[in-house]
Nucleic acid binder design. Structure first.
Length: 847
RNA sequence: GCGAGAGUGGUGAAAUUGGUAGACGCACUGGACUUAGGAUCCAGCCCACGUGAGUGGUUGGGGGUUCGACUCCCCCCUCUCGCACCA
C-alpha cells in the first residue's frame, strides 16, 4: 500500500518522501481532508443521529430485547466526570448490544425534585422549577455533545405532574393495601436542610446531602411499610448472581435478620408484662437481671413511687443529652440505674431486678433485653460495673469458661432444669417450644430494617396525596382529583421552611367523603420515591392510564444491565427493589426484581481524592470536549481503568487517547482510496499478510471476550492498539487484508468512539450505516498461530526459549529442550530427576 | 470491634484452569526531521552488578503446598469501603 506523507508545518508545504527507515508510517498533515477535525465530525454525526432518530425503539417481539439503564442524574447544573464515565460505559454497552442484534432500550431522564433546586431558588430569588428546567436543558445538551445513544423520546423529568401523578396514585394504592401509614415517632432531623431523613439517608450519623449531624426529633410522618417485604428482599438476594457480592452483602447486613424468640416476663406487683426479644433463648436460665431502654414506655410506671424514682429520671435525662452530644463513632460507656422494680423469669420464677440501661435501643426488638452476663459481653460489662450476679449456663465443649469475659460460643446447657445437658442449638428450639406451649413466648424473627419514612418538610417535591377531614379523619385524595399539583405561585423565606405549610389556598380543601372542611398534607415525598420506579416508567413514558403500560413493561422489564455508583448500594437500590415488589402486588408489574445485572462503577478521582469543588480538583467535561472532542474523552475514561475500579484522571493520559485517535484517523484517511477491494481476506496468505490477518482475527476474539467478561474495555482497547501497531508497520500486506483489518478496527471501536468510526466508515466507502452493522465474527482458523514460543525452564527458572510449530508433540519438545545449547550449559551437575512438559507452553527440567 | 475488598515498575494498569510477570498507555531518556517543536517518526525504559553477552533479584512482609505461585493455604502489616452496643 502507498503511504502519503505530509509534514506538519506552518507553511503547509509537503516534504518529499524519504527512503530511509525513519520514514513515518503514518502521514502527518494539516491538509483539510486528512486532519482529524473532531468538532466537525462529532457535530455532523450527532445531528444525523438526532435527525434520523437512530436510537428510537419500540417493542418488537421479533427481536431479543435488552434494557440498558444508567442511574439518571440530578439536574444540578452541569454534568461532571462521574456522569461522563457512567454514561460512557452505558453507551458502549448499548451500542455493542445493538450490534449483537438486540433491540436496545437506552433511555435518559432527570431526577428533578430535590433540595438543591429549592435552596438555589431561595438564594437567587427565582423558582425551583425554572432553575431545574434550565439545568435540564443545559445538561441535555452536554449529554448530546457526548454522543450518547439515548432514545430521547422517552425522556422523563420527575418534577412533571405527568410523572408524579402516578406516584400519588400508587401512594394511595399502597395506603389502601395497608402499606402506607402515619405515625408520630423519633425521626432524623437535619437542621440545615430543614427536613426529616430516612435511616438510609443518614451516613455516619450525618445527612447524606449536607453532611451536617442529624438530631433526633419527635414528629408525625408517613411511612412505607418496607419491613413487610424484609423477608423477600433478603431471600431474593441469594438469587441475584448478576449483582456484585459487595452490594449483596451490604443489603443483607442492612436488612439484618435475626432469628430468635420473644418471651414475656411478668412484672412483680403488676398485671403488665415485659416482652423481650432474644437470639439466645438457650441462655434464659442464666438471666440475672433485665435491661430496658431509657425511652421504654413502661419505665415511668416501673419507677414511680420507688426510692429510685428520682435517680431514674435523672439518668434518662442525662442519657438523652449524652446521646445528642455523642458523635457517630462514640460508644458510650455502659451505664444504668435500678428502676426499683422486679420481673420474674418465667422459667425459674427468679426475681430479676429491672435496670434502665443506656445501651439498650428502643428501636430494636422490644426495647427490653434479658441480661445474661455469663454469655453476653455487654451484659457482662454491665454486671461487673454494678455488682450483679453472673450465672453460667453454657459449658464449652472443651476448656473452661473465660474468667474475665462472657462466653458467647456453643456448648451444652448446665443448671438449666430439664434442659441441662442438651446442646445449646437444640436447646434454643426446645426452650422456645416450651415458652410457646406455656403461652409466654414464641419464635420470632426480627429485622434491623426500619420502615421508610418519606415525609419531607420541604416544598420542591411531589405532594403527598392525603388530607385530614375534621369529621372523617385521615383520607386519601380521590383518584379523580389527582394529580395534587405542586402550586407554583409560592413565596420562599430564607429559613427554608416550606411555603406549603402556610399556604391556605393549597392546604384548605374539602373531604372527598363527606364534603366537609379538610386540610391537605403539606409535606412532600422523599425524592427517592421518584427514583424508585423511573426505570418502569421509561417503558411507557407517556402512558396516561397508570404508572406503566403493562404490555410495554412486560416486554422490556426487568432492566438487563443497570449501571451506577456504589453509593446507592443500599438507598436507591433497596427502595427500587421494594417498589418493584409493591408494584407487582398492586398489579402493575409481573416481575420480582428490577435489575438483573448491576455494575457499580468506581469514582473518578484526581490527585488521589474524589473530584469535588471544595478540593478544587474538578475537571470540566465541557472544557475537555472542546479541547479534545467527545470521542477522546470517552476513550480515555474507558482505557484508564476497568469500570468497577476508581479512575484516576490524568490530563496526559487524555493526550495519549487523543494521539491514538488522530493516528487512527490519519491512517484510515491515507488508506481510504482502498475502496474497491473486497473486504474479505484471501484463504492462503503468507508473510505480512498472514501476520496481519491472524492479528485481526485474534483481536476480534480478544475484544469480544473482554467486553463480555465484566466489560473490561481497557483491555479491549489495548488489543486494538496492538492491532493498529501491526497494521501501521506491516506495509507489505495485501490490500484486501489491510482493508479487512481497517474495517474491523472501525467496527470494534464504534461503541466506544462512535463519531470518528462513523466518519471513517463512510470515508472508506461503505454506504450502509455503521449504526446497524453487525458485530464482527472471528474465524478461529485464521486466528490460529502457526508457531509458538516454548519456554524451557530448569527447576522453574526460564533458561531458554524454543520456536516450534503448533502441535509439536511432547516427546519432540522434550528432545528439543535437552538438545538446546543453553540448556546443556546448565545441566552440567546432577542427574535429571524429572521433565515436565506442558503442551504449547513449556518444558521444565528438574535436576 | 464486625463484615467486604484491595496491595504488581516513576505512573494508569495487564497476566485462561497455578505455567515467559509488567501487554497496552502515560511519563522519562536518547536520536531523526526541523527556523522552532508542545506535532510526528525511530529507539531505549522493573531493580542491582557488568562496556557487553550475561548473572542475580523482584508482584506489601513472613512461612507453606508445588517441578513451577501475582494466582492456592496459614500468619502478619497497610489502605479503602460498609456497619456501629441490633440483644
Amino acid at each position: 500500500m502507498a503511504f502519503i506523507c505530509y509534514s506538519f508545518r506552518c507553511d503547509n508545504k509537503p516534504y518529499s518522501l524519504q527512503p530511509n527507515s525513519l520514514q513515518p508510517k503514518i502521514p502527518m498533515t494539516i491538509d483539510e481532508t486528512l486532519t482529524y477535525d473532531f468538532a466537525a465530525i462529532e457535530t455532523k454525526w450527532q445531528s444525523e443521529w438526532q435527525n434520523k432518530a437512530t436510537f428510537k425503539v419500540s417493542e418488537d417481539q421479533s427481536l431479543p430485547k435488552y434494557y440498558l439503564l444508567e442511574m439518571f442524574p440530578y439536574p444540578s447544573g452541569r454534568i461532571h466526570m462521574g456522569h461522563v464515565r457512567n454514561y460512557t460505559i452505558g453507551d458502549v454497552i448499548a451500542r455493542y448490544k445493538r450490534m449483537k442484534g438486540f433491540n436496545v432500550l437506552h433511555p435518559m431522564g432527570w431526577d428533578a425534585f430535590g433540595l438543591p433546586a429549592e435552596n438555589a431558588a431561595i438564594k437567587h430569588n427565582t423558582h425551583p422549577a425554572k432553575w431545574t428546567l434550565e439545568n435540564i436543558a443545559y445538561m441535555k445538551n452536554q449529554l448530546r455533545r457526548m454522543g450518547f445513544s439515548y432514545d430521547w423520546d422517552r425522556e422523563v423529568a420527575t418534577c412533571n405532574s405527568d410523572y408524579y401523578r402516578w406516584e400519588q396514585q400508587f401512594f394511595i394504592d399502597l395506603y389502601n393495601k395497608g402499606l402506607v401509614y402515619r405515625k408520630m415517632t423519633t425521626v432524623n432531623w437535619c437542621e440545615p436542610c430543614q427536613t426529616v431523613l430516612a435511616n438510609e439517608q443518614v451516613i455516619e450519623g450525618a445527612c447524606w446531602r449536607c453532611d451536617h449531624k442529624v438530631m433526633p426529633r419527635e414528629m408525625n410522618g408517613w411511612f412505607f411499610k418496607i419491613t413487610d417485604y424484609a423477608d423477600e428482599l433478603l431471600a431474593e438476594l441469594d438469587n441475584m448472581p448478576g449483582w456484585p457480592d459487595k452490594v449483596l452483602t451490604m443489603q443483607r447486613h442492612w436488612i439484618g435478620k435475626s432469628v430468635g424468640a420473644s418471651i414475656d416476663f411478668a412484672i412483680e406487683n403488676s398485671s403488665k408484662r415485659l416482652p423481650i426479644f432474644t437470639t439466645r433463648p438457650d441462655t434464659i436460665f442464666g438471666a440475672t437481671f433485665m435491661s430496658i431502654a431509657p425511652e421504654h414506655p413502661l419505665l415511668d410506671e416501673l419507677c414511680r413511687g420507688t426510692a429510685q424514682e428520682e435517680q431514674v429520671r435523672t439518668f434518662v435525662e442525662e442519657t438523652r443529652n449524652a446521646k445528642q452530644r455523642a458523635n457517630y463513632e462514640d460508644v458510650l460507656d455502659k451505664a444504668g440505674v435500678f428502676t426499683g422494680s422486679y420481673c420474674l423469669n418465667p422459667f425459674t420464677n427468679e426475681r430479676l431486678p429491672i435496670y434502665a440501661a443506656n445501651f439498650v435501643l428502643m428501636e430494636y426488638g422490644t426495647g427490653a433485653v434479658m441480661a445474661v452476663p455469663a454469655h453476653d459481653q455487654r451484659d457482662y460489662e454491665f454486671a461487673c460495673k454494678y455488682g450483679l450476679a453472673i450465672k453460667p449456663v453454657i459449658q464449652p465443649e472443651s476448656g473452661e469458661l473465660p474468667s474475665n469475659a462472657a462466653y458467647e460460643g456453643p456448648g451444652a446447657l448446665i443448671d438449666s432444669a430439664e434442659f441441662s445437658g442438651i446442646d445449646n442449638e437444640a436447646a434454643k428450639k426446645a426452650i422456645t417450644a416450651k415458652a410457646a406451649a406455656k403461652g409466654f413466648g414464641k419464635a420470632q424473627t426480627t429485622f434491623r430494617l426500619r420502615d421508610w419514612g418519606i415525609s419531607r418538610q420541604r416544598y420542591w417535591g411531589a405532594p403527598i396525596p392525603m388530607l385530614t377531614c375534621e369529621a372523617c379523619g385521615i383520607q386519601p385524595v380521590a383518584s379523580a382529583d389527582l394529580p395534587v399539583l405542586l402550586p407554583t405561585d409560592v413565596q420562599f423565606d430564607q429559613s427554608g421552611k416550606s411555603p406549603l405549610h402556610t399556604m391556605e389556598s393549597f392546604f384548605s380543601t374539602t373531604c372527598p367523603r363527606c364534603g366537609g372542611r379538610a386540610r391537605r398534607e403539606t409535606d412532600t415525598m422523599d425524592t427517592f420515591v421518584e427514583s424508585s420506579w423511573y426505570y418502569a416508567r421509561y417503558t411507557s413514558p407517556r402512558f396516561q392510564g397508570g404508572m406503566v403500560d403493562m404490555a410495554a413493561a412486560n416486554y422490556w422489564l426487568p432492566v438487563d444491565q443497570y449501571i451506577g455508583g456504589v453509593e446507592h448500594a443500599i438507598l436507591h437500590l433497596l427502595y427500587s427493589r421494594f417498589f418493584t415488589k409493591a408494584m407487582r402486588d398492586v398489579g402493575y408489574l409481573t416481575i420480582d426484581e428490577p435489575f438483573t445485572n448491576l455494575l457499580t462503577q468506581g469514582m473518578v478521582i484526581k490527585d488521589g481524592t474524589k473530584m469535588s469543588k471544595s478540593k478544587g480538583n474538578v475537571v470540566d467535561p465541557d472544557t475537555l470536549v472542546k479541547q479534545y472532542g467527545a470521542d477522546t474523552v470517552r476513550l480515555f475514561g474507558l482505557f484508564a481503568a476497568p469500570p468497577e475500579r476508581d479512575l484516576e484522571w490524568n490530563d496526559q493520559g487524555v493526550e495519549g487517547s487523543s494521539r491514538f485517535l488522530s493516528k487512527l484517523y490519519r491512517f484510515v484517511a491515507a488508506n481510504s482510496s482502498n475502496k474497491q477491494t473486497e473486504a474479505t481476506p484471501e484463504t492462503t496468505l503468507d508473510g505480512e499478510s498472514r501476520l496481519l490477518q491472524r492479528k485481526t482475527h485474534q483481536t476480534i476474539q480478544k475484544f469480544s471476550t473482554d467486553i463480555e467478561n465484566n466489560f473490561h474495555f481497557n483491555t479491549c482497547i489495548s488489543s486494538v492498539m496492538e492491532l493498529m501497531n501491526v497494521l501501521t508497520t506491516q506495509d507489505q500486506a495485501h490490500p484486501s487484508v489491510v482493508r479487512f483489518a481497517i474495517d474491523t478496527v472501525i467496527k470494534l471501536l464504534y461503541p466506544m468512539v462512535p463519531h470518528i468510526c462513523a466518519e471513517l466508515w463512510r470515508m472508506t466507502g461503505h454506504s450502509e450505516s455503521l449504526d446497524t452493522m453487525a458485530w464482527p465474527a472471528f474465524d478461529p482458523e485464521a486466528a490460529k498461530e502457526d508457531e509458538l514460543t516454548i519456554v524451557i525452564q530448569i527447576c522453574g527458572k526460564v533458561r531458554s526459549r524454543l520456536q516450534v510449530p503448533v502441535g509439536t508433540s511432547e516427546e519432540q519438545l522434550k528432545e528439543m529442550a535437552l538438545a538446546d545449547e543453553r540448556v546443556e550449559k546448565y545441566l552440567g551437575q546432577g542427574p535429571i530427576r524429572k521433565i515436565i512438559v506442558v503442551k504449547d507452553k513449556l518444558v521444565n527440567i528438574v535436576v
